[in-house]
Nucleic acid binder design. Structure first.
Lengths: 333, 333
DNA sequence: CTGTTAGCGCGTTCAA
DNA sequence: TTGAACGCGCTAACAG
């Protein structure tokens, strides 16, 4: 059996309450007593049993982070931002993989509720959010990142996708480009919808016609990027400039171009989203919209901490959901 | 306050003990009673408070997974394997980022001990492992993945790095290559040491001299790969074939070659380690040693589960550490 | 400033 | 087959 507060109290010749106070940095304690307890803690090798504390305080010091997949530099950079903030506050992060499947996602939410996490940060795997409400029902604060969902209201940290896409287009247009292809992810997802919106808005503002044949939608993965670029290049009159709505699509598209080089493909220029460590070796890339990924994670963690504070403080109705948009930056290659 | 066993018991007209038995699939319970309790659980929306259970059973249903960094497709693929197995067993995974810093690593270990995890899987961040012993001291089983450490004995799941590297070299040699450069990670890490060992062994077996000038060591990151390839290409007589000991080094090396194309670089062929989703678009790549990453994670999770079982079963001394080597496969491009 | 005491929600005896 | 009662380790009143 592990050493408990009782053992420490015995060793230090004080009560368990005093030990608890030392453990929780209670100010009202004589320095001599405090140091004696600390000494005993060291000698006995005491470690707090957080399960027991949780039972009392109904706060576990853990938060859940639910992402669509783990092998994804975007999600994991956000995760590093989350972890960065939460660690310094003494929180543990339970990372859950939704496997890009709403059923898995719902399943993991159940787990997190049972683990009694103090809060949850979610990068939604789809546009469906009704299953998130079980968290609110359990009184667990939620912050969403990157995407918004239908059927559930909560704090969210999003990139300014519309203006990000718009500014990239504006930049290209200013260099003389007048015809653009588009390769995008599922329009069911808010972030991809917004990027397309920014694309369209730029075309509209500069009087460039929308050509449906060179606008392609798929999912968010490498394969899809490959296939969509293939489709694009098979068009009668393919564009020379292509806006691609995320990194993985860009990787796939680039792969196609590498494997099928020709006169047609040689003149392709890609404007992409997300600045990853490998972006710089991708050919055909002219410009990239960079999201502040780490910052998005940090901001989400901070917002969650605020909510957790609020909750344990006042019992009144919580403030309405907050929506934070973080600016993107443009990177020219 | 959330609904507890007490509420359910009241609702079902039974005692809390009976509810508990239903919850834990205790066989000795009348079917009628069981279904009545199950009904009440549904109606009341009861969810078990695992903190309370932990306090009784001293098992939390969580395991820690400690990795050097999150933004790393290798580590995260291993993590997916771990999660895959553990999820089906009802465990939650607390993912911790050691930030490639032994101090962070030690810090996270403390956190995991306090969270009372049932076990920990570690991809060590360095060769130092003495700080892992606090886990064993707390009676928490440990399984290491990918790398071994000094000063700590535990189960480990490793790739067969020596034979992996050896077979790649053998393959290249069979195609007529007779001169090889080497770009490797820190020789402090067991996996990189082993890959270099396999490289050397192949040279030796085929009577090829070791040329120190074209053997470069750095860390395990993109920058390092870039710089080492630069050094290599600056040698008086650079090799045409280069063995590169991991994916990130290869990315960096490739980046250098792309940015500094010349007659010299055009004839470079790279044999790399780790088959990632982006490997296929890396130029200069001739052959890749593929580690069974997901499988390594799964195996580690299974071994950990065994240890956890063992521990809660017999109180006798545990079996000695087990070492599992997983075979690599060769991919030709 | 410190000790005493009473649960937090659950699993587990021991009786019935 | 089921219920009553106790305690896991800790914190939060309330005393003193």
């Amino acid at each position: 059996m592990a050493v408990t507060v009782k053992n420490v109290a015995l060793h230090a010749g004080v009560s368990t309450a005093t030990v608890s106070r030392v453990l929780n940095d209670d100010p009202g304690i004589r320095p001599a007593t405090r140091s004696r307890v600390i000494e005993s803690i060291k000698i006995t090798g005491y470690r707090m049993n957080k399960a027991a504390r949780s039972l009392k305080t109904s706060r576990t010091g853990t938060v859940g982070l639910l992402v669509p997949e783990l092998v994804n530099d975007f999600f994991m950079t956000v995760a590093e931002g989350v972890e960065d903030i939460l660690r310094t506050e003494g929180y543990g992060v339970i990372l859950c993989n939704a496997n890009e499947d709403v059923r898995y996602e719902a399943d993991r939410i159940s787990l997190l509720i049972e683990q009694c996490v103090d809060g949850v940060i979610i990068i939604p795997t789809s546009s469906e959010g009704s299953h998130f409400s079980s968290l609110s029902d359990a009184g667990i604060p939620v912050v969403m990142v990157d995407r918004m969902v239908n059927g559930f209201k909560a704090d969210a940290v999003l990139a300014d996708n519309i203006n990000g896409a718009y500014s990239a287009m504006q930049n290209l247009i200013s260099t003389g480009c007048r015809r653009f292809g588009f390769i995008g992810g599922s329009q069911e997802l808010s972030n991809f919808r917004e990027r397309f919106e920014g694309f369209k808005r730029a075309l509209s503002d500069y009087g460039i016609p929308v050509e449906k044949d060179i606008i392609k939608f798929g999912n968010v993965h490498i394969d899809s990027g490959y296939n969509l670029m293939k489709e694009l290049m098979s068009e009668a009159n393919p564009p020379e400039n292509v806006f691609i709505a995320n990194y993985f699509l860009q990787v796939g598209a680039t792969k196609f171009l590498i494997e099928n080089s020709s006169a047609k493909t040689a003149s392709i220029h890609i404007a992409g989203f997300d600045d990853m460590s490998l972006s710089s070796i991708l050919g055909f890339s002219s410009i990239t919209v960079s999201q502040p990924m780490m910052e998005m994670g940090r901001k989400a963690a901070e917002m969650l901490l605020e909510r957790i504070e609020e909750q344990s403080a006042l019992a009144s109705a919580p403030p309405p959901p907050r929506l934070v948009r973080l600016k993107t930056t443009l990177i020219k290659h």
